[in-house]
């Protein structure tokens, strides 16, 4: 954290790179089409003034969307050689990784912001329970951050963005899946459900803010960032 100004500069630079490229808008549009479809399906078909269905689908949607957002962060730098520029500037590796993580997470927040329109839509026609909605958004930020950190870790491992995307998707999909397959495993392995991202996200999106769930997401973020820093430093 020694050079926070450098981190802020990296965040600004990465956000600018996201929004000057059409890929950002394509990713946001695809996300909004899918999330809008699943939200309005319940809204119109079942006359339900709630956002539960949207939040139920976010963890699996994010396994595709977040790796697509983060795959370029280090892979592109390694491929083009600009990592040499970044790593020979007076910036700690941690500050560089943190800057990219924050930029990725901010992008995800910007991506989910338009879904607030759905909230206003249901407020117009009904009186939803706000607890799960606030919890859902809070959990979404934590989930997005955790997946972004995994995406950055995968991006630091390969020059190839597709490899980075697939690696990040595999890890995040495994974390989404693990609590669902635990019933097929011996009871001794039941503790594995606590590794599941969806398990913790479901708790938060019910409107129950439990420190264990928050600690889970923060731990995933911390471990991924530390590993990314280690990988970048070891490559020297």
């Amino acid at each position: 954290m020694k050079n926070i100004n450098a981190t802020i500069s990296i965040v600004k630079k990465e956000l600018r790179s996201y929004f000057v490229s059409p890929i950002a808008y394509i990713v946001i549009t695809i996300f909004l089409i899918f999330s809008g479809f699943f939200f309005f399906k319940d809204f119109f078909y079942f006359n339900q003034a709630e956002m539960r269905n949207l939040f139920q689908l976010l963890p699996i949607m994010f396994t595709f969307v977040v790796p697509a957002v983060t795959m370029r962060l280090f892979s592109e730098e390694r491929y083009s050689g600009s990592l040499e520029i970044l790593m020979t500037l007076p910036v700690e590796t941690f500050n560089a990784v943190l800057g990219k993580f924050l930029a990725g997470t901010i992008f995800i927040v910007v991506m989910i912001l338009p879904t607030i329109i759905y909230l206003f839509s249901i407020l117009l026609v009904g009186s939803p329970d706000m607890g799960p909605i606030i919890g859902g958004y809070f959990g979404t930020v934590l989930l997005g951050g955790a997946y972004a950190s995994i995406g950055i870790l995968a991006s630091s491992l390969s020059k190839n963005q597709i490899v980075a995307f697939i690696s990040a998707w595999a890890v995040t999909f495994f974390l989404w899946l693990i609590d669902k397959i635990v019933i097929f495993l011996p009871s001794k392995l039941a503790f594995l459900q606590y590794l599941g991202s969806d398990f913790h996200f479901r708790n938060i999106s019910k409107g129950i803010i439990d420190t264990r769930d928050i600690i889970y997401f923060l731990s995933v973020i911390a471990i991924s960032i530390i590993l990314t820093v280690k990988i970048l430093d070891e490559r020297r």
Binding site: N5, A6, S9, I10, K12, K13, R16, S17, V20, S21, S80, G81, S82, E84, I85, T88, L89, P90, V91
Partner: peptide, 30 residues
Amino acid sequence: KKIIGYLPESAPLYGDMLVYDYLNYIAEIR
């Protein structure tokens, strides 16, 4: 790194940035 200025081989710069924005970014980091 503060007292060295380094131009790597083939100048691998950020192609998606304007020249001014790029130099401004480097100036901010420094």
